Amino acid sequence: MELKVTRVEVDDHGVATVTLNRPDRGNSWTGRMHAEYRWIMAELERDERVRVAVLTGAGRAFCVGADTKALSSYVGGGGYDGGLREEVANPGYGVRPEFDADVSWQLGLRFPLICAVNGACAGVALAMAAYADIRFGMVDAKITTATAKLAMPVEYGLSWILPRIIGLTHAADVLLSGRILRAQELGGMGFFNEVLGPDEFHDAVTGYARMLARLSPTATTVTKRQLYDDLLASNPAASVDRSKELISELMAHPDYGEGVRALVEKRAPEFGR
Rank of each mutant, 00 (worst) to 15 (best):
A116T: 00
G123T: 01
A141L: 03
G190E: 09
M138Y: 14
V139E: 14
P153H: 10
I134W: 07
A183M: 13
V117R: 03
G178W: 00
A146S: 13
R135E: 06
L84Y: 11
C63G: 00
Y93M: 03
P91M: 09
G92T: 04
A172S: 13
L176N: 09
P163I: 04
A70C: 10
K149E: 14
L109D: 03
N118Q: 02
A70W: 12
T144W: 07
E98I: 09
A101Q: 12
G65P: 01
R85N: 08
G167F: 10
E185W: 04
L126H: 11
T169A: 09
G82H: 12
D140H: 15
W160R: 04
P112R: 00
N118L: 01
A127D: 02
A146K: 08
S104V: 13
P97D: 13
E185H: 05
L162D: 04
M138D: 04
T169S: 11
V64R: 15
R110P: 09
Y131R: 07
G137M: 02
T169D: 11
A171F: 03
L158W: 00
G76F: 07
F99E: 04
A61P: 05
R135M: 12
P163C: 04
D100H: 08
V95F: 09
V103Q: 04
M138I: 09
L176D: 14
V95E: 14
R96E: 12
Y131I: 04
Q184E: 15
V154P: 03
A132R: 02
Q106Y: 05
V117F: 00
Q184G: 15
A70L: 07
N118E: 00
Y74P: 02
S72C: 11
M189C: 10
A172F: 03
D102L: 13
N90G: 09
I161L: 06
F111V: 11
P163Q: 06
P91L: 07
L150M: 15
G119Y: 01
I161W: 00
G108Q: 02
S104P: 08
F136T: 02
G187V: 04
W105S: 04
A129W: 08
G82L: 08
F62T: 03
L126A: 04
I143M: 07
A130I: 05
N90L: 10
A66F: 07
F111P: 01
A146N: 08
Y156F: 10
Y74C: 05
A130E: 05
P112T: 00
V88Q: 06
I143T: 03
G157Y: 06
Y74I: 14
L109Q: 05
F191E: 00
L107C: 06
L186P: 02
D102M: 12
F191M: 14
G83V: 06
G137F: 02
W105L: 11
L162R: 02
I114C: 02
Q106H: 07
A172Y: 02
G94L: 13
D140I: 06
V75Q: 10
Y80S: 14
A116F: 03
H170T: 06
I166Q: 01
L109T: 00
S104K: 12
A172C: 12
L186T: 05
A151H: 10
D133R: 04
D81L: 13
T144Y: 09
G79S: 14
